[in-house]
Amino acid sequence: MKIPLRHYLSLLGITTAAFVFNTSEFMPIALLTDIAGSFSMTTAETGGMITIYAWVVAVLSLPLMLLTCRMELKRLMLLVVAVFSVGQLLSGIATSYPMLLAARIVVACAHAIFWSIAAPLAAQLVTHEHRPMALGMIVTGSSVAMIFGLPIGRMIGLYAGWRMTFLIIAGIALAALLYLAYMLPQRKQDKPFSAHDLPQLLRNPALSCIYVMTALFATAYFTAYSYIEPFLHEIASFSPTLITVALMAIGACGILASLLFTHGYGRHRFLLLRFVLPCVFAALLLFQAASISMFTMLLLCMFVGMVATLYNILFQAELLGLVMGPGSTVAMSIYSGIFNIGIGSGTWIGSLAAGHGHLAHIGYIGAAIAAITVFFCWHIYLPTIQGKRY
């Protein structure tokens, strides 16, 4: 059964929004040095903005989703993209670090809801057989942000100032808002989720395990990734242009992960689930060793981009298989919040390492946390879901 043209075009609109949101979320990482310089701060001090952003998303994801879960999904999506656009505009005109921080918090509020509804909404637009493709499109939007959005934003920031990058993102978000307003069909929830339903949702052992693993994975990964720009510059001796190439390589391999998921999840689900986290562990463990040459570091960046993206899309699909109906948006909001707890924790740990002269060792720190995640996956999650098919 083919996807109706309007639904496919709606998926493209959500994919574009995912591109914009993902570009914005990680843009400070690509411009950390320049933002710090404009406010006469160190990169470790300015990196606190990434931590605060992530923790705001973590704290607000569930409350905001419960507050808005009775809204029709199209109206909610349009509201979220509009708030996001305002936050980007304020980021672009920020004249002080506190003002920039406040603008990023506005963006974080929109982020908290967007990633809670994007995947469930995409899944609702297609039949069950096309769900991997729909989720793959959303992840592709995120990956394209890493290939083109993040490096192009970095180049714009280097040549026209980091504020211009945020202003351009605001303009693209406005265009996405107008497109979605015209193209996205209305999607009412059959039965609004209530806070009274939360205990039953959280009693699902497989879902609880996904949440624990996600917190650990995000902490491990972002301990290294949040400071990859100064790592590549100071430890791997990359030029600014080569850093841009490395960031593009990470995003490009995210698309490979999306393709691997789309074509392999149905037939090789347990194989992918079993080996994705050991691959994350190995990649982080090799971070410092790979920095001895440009070639090995670029290869590792490509591998990191693939396995990190594959983890995210795999376990979003697992979550949507475990939780059907109106509870899926709330379950996804908890996932998003927990993921951002991990981002904030990883960024904080990375800042401590960088601030105390251990920038070269951030990969080892991340690998130690990833090892715990592998244990949870192999010894708790996989036995719990053995024999279950979605």
Rank of each mutant, 00 (worst) to 15 (best):
L5W: 06
S10Q: 10
T15E: 01
T15A: 02
A17S: 13
V20T: 08
E25L: 04
E25W: 00
F26A: 11
M27C: 05
L32M: 12
F39G: 14
S40P: 00
A44F: 02
G48D: 06
I52W: 00
I52P: 00
I52A: 04
V56P: 06
L60S: 15
L60H: 10
L62C: 03
L62A: 11
M65E: 02
C69N: 15
C69R: 11
E72D: 14
L73R: 13
L78F: 03
V81G: 05
F84W: 07
F84K: 07
Q88F: 13
Q88P: 12
L90W: 08
L90D: 11
S91I: 10
G92F: 00
I93W: 08
A102S: 14
V106M: 12
I117K: 02
L125G: 14
H130I: 01
P132D: 00
V139G: 06
V139Y: 03
V144S: 02
L150F: 10
L150Y: 09
P151F: 13
G153Y: 01
W162H: 07
W162I: 07
R163F: 02
F166I: 13
L167F: 04
A170C: 09
I172G: 04
I172L: 11
A173T: 14
L177V: 02
L180H: 07
L180R: 08
L180M: 12
P185S: 08
Q189Y: 00
Q189G: 02
H196R: 12
P199F: 09
Q200F: 14
Q200R: 15
L202Q: 06
P205D: 08
P205T: 14
A206I: 10
S208M: 05
C209A: 11
Y211C: 11
V212R: 12
V212M: 11
L216R: 03
T219R: 05
A220F: 02
T223Y: 01
Y227S: 01
E229C: 08
P230A: 07
F231Y: 15
L232P: 12
S239R: 04
I243T: 15
V245F: 15
V245M: 14
A249E: 09
I250P: 00
A252E: 07
L260G: 02
H268C: 10
R269M: 08
L271P: 00
F275M: 13
P278C: 07
P278I: 09
V280T: 04
L285T: 14
F287H: 04
A290E: 01
A290S: 10
I292Y: 04
S293P: 13
S293L: 13
M294S: 11
M294T: 15
M294V: 15
F295K: 14
L298E: 02
L299S: 14
G305N: 02
A317K: 07
A317F: 09
E318C: 09
L322W: 01
G327H: 03
F339V: 06
N340S: 08
N340D: 04
T347I: 05
W348R: 07
S351K: 14
L359Q: 07
I362M: 05
Y364N: 01
A368G: 12
I369T: 12
I372R: 07
Y381A: 04
T384H: 02
I385Q: 05
